[in-house]
Nucleic acid binder design. Structure first.
Length: 106
DNA sequence: ACGGTGACGCTCA
DNA sequence: TTGAGCGCCACCG
């Protein structure tokens, strides 16, 4: 509900890592959490990205669920899918096509 | 300090 | 395979 624009250390790490993800590829909340040093904080990752103050600067739309689903998006899942497709990532029924091949590893 | 919330992940039926 | 339940972590009031 509340929007918090303040950036915390944890979130800051997520943004830095996320900026390393190349266009046309995607990563997962779990992998991102792990890279940030909290392999079990996949949920916290979602919370941090939800308040993402760097909108297009940080490709938060390239973060998807571990099962290949696009997951959620502040602007709407539909919007997220649209962006991914625009970057060359095929999405079918809210799921990444060739998910594992699109996955970017830190 | 405590409880509630949420763009998740995994296990079980 | 699909759906429901439980666990995890960080942030907010």
């Amino acid at each position: 509900m509340n929007r918090q624009k303040e950036i915390s250390g944890f979130a800051n790490q997520l943004y830095a890592l996320l900026k390393k993800v190349p266009k046309g590829k995607v990563t997962t909340y779990g992998a991102l959490a792990k890279a940030a040093g909290r392999p079990r904080a996949s949920r916290a990752v979602g919370n941090a990205l939800n308040a993402n103050p760097f909108a297009p600067q940080v490709p938060c739309h390239r973060v998807v669920r571990s099962n290949g689903e696009v997951g959620g998006f502040a602007g709407g899942t539909d919007k997220k899918i649209r962006i991914l497709k625009d970057e060359g990532v095929a999405v079918k029924n809210e799921k990444i096509v060739l998910f594992e091949e699109r996955l970017f590893e830190f």
